[in-house]
Amino acid sequence: MSPINSINLSKIFSKLDKNGDGLVCLDELKGFLDTIGIIASQEELELLLGKTSLDSIDFFFFYDAITKANINKGSNYKHEDRENVFLENDLRKVFRVFDLNEDGFICCEELQRALSRLGLWDEQCGKDCKSMINVYDKNLDGKLDYEEFKDMMFDN
């Protein structure tokens, strides 16, 4: 299960494509990543992506790569995998973007507000917030701690 479905990825892509040319340039992508707490320079993004803009298919592949990145210190990384190592540290920053009250947990209301800021909120999503949390809530406390959040983000 992917944390964000293809319909919502399309919405994000459309919002990022501010000039409507069907491409998300690195400036637009960098702005989005900054907003969700992932800090990367334009040079790092260009090195990682190997291009200066992404069409919607490239954007979907980029999303897929960052959510499925296998950060395993003992393995031999390909060039792209080496560049994705920053995700482990930055994932904590993303967690803090969702953890609005900074209590170390993401509750349904915080998830809803974060999705609203990304333009992904609708009434159906509100019902999905609870079920999304419940799927990954191992200790059944109704909220996600960092490890549960990490499991959700890297779920296949």
Score class of each variant (00 low, 15 high):
76 N>Q: 14
76 N>M: 14
78 K>N: 14
79 H>I: 10
79 H>P: 14
80 E>V: 12
81 D>P: 09
81 D>T: 06
82 R>A: 10
82 R>F: 14
84 N>P: 02
85 V>C: 05
85 V>N: 01
86 F>C: 09
86 F>A: 04
87 L>M: 10
88 E>A: 09
88 E>T: 08
88 E>D: 15
89 N>W: 11
89 N>E: 15
89 N>R: 09
89 N>A: 04
89 N>S: 08
91 L>W: 04
91 L>Y: 07
92 R>Y: 15
92 R>G: 10
92 R>T: 08
92 R>N: 12
93 K>V: 05
93 K>M: 11
95 F>P: 09
95 F>E: 06
95 F>S: 01
95 F>C: 03
96 R>Q: 12
96 R>Y: 09
97 V>K: 11
98 F>R: 00
98 F>H: 04
98 F>Y: 14
99 D>C: 08
99 D>A: 06
99 D>G: 07
99 D>M: 07
99 D>N: 13
100 L>W: 04
100 L>H: 10
101 N>K: 13
101 N>A: 06
101 N>M: 10
103 D>V: 07
103 D>H: 08
103 D>G: 02
105 F>S: 03
106 I>M: 00
107 C>M: 07
108 C>H: 09
109 E>K: 11
110 E>W: 04
110 E>F: 04
111 L>M: 14
112 Q>L: 11
112 Q>E: 14
113 R>H: 11
113 R>N: 11
113 R>S: 10
118 L>Q: 04
118 L>N: 03
119 G>I: 01
119 G>Y: 03
119 G>P: 03
120 L>T: 00
120 L>Q: 03
120 L>N: 02
121 W>A: 02
121 W>K: 08
121 W>L: 13
121 W>Y: 09
121 W>N: 04
123 E>H: 01
123 E>K: 03
124 Q>G: 02
124 Q>Y: 09
125 C>P: 00
125 C>R: 02
126 G>L: 02
126 G>V: 01
127 K>A: 04
128 D>S: 05
128 D>E: 14
129 C>W: 06
129 C>A: 14
129 C>R: 00
129 C>V: 06
130 K>H: 10
130 K>A: 06
131 S>T: 11
131 S>G: 00
131 S>E: 12
132 M>G: 00
132 M>V: 07
132 M>Q: 05
133 I>M: 01
133 I>F: 01
133 I>C: 00
133 I>Y: 01
133 I>W: 01
134 N>V: 02
135 V>S: 09
135 V>G: 01
137 D>E: 13
137 D>S: 09
138 K>Q: 13
138 K>A: 14
138 K>D: 15
138 K>P: 03
139 N>R: 05
140 L>A: 12
141 D>N: 15
142 G>T: 05
144 L>H: 10
144 L>G: 06
145 D>P: 09
145 D>C: 14
145 D>H: 06
145 D>W: 07
146 Y>M: 05
147 E>F: 12
148 E>Y: 07
148 E>V: 06
148 E>P: 13
149 F>L: 10
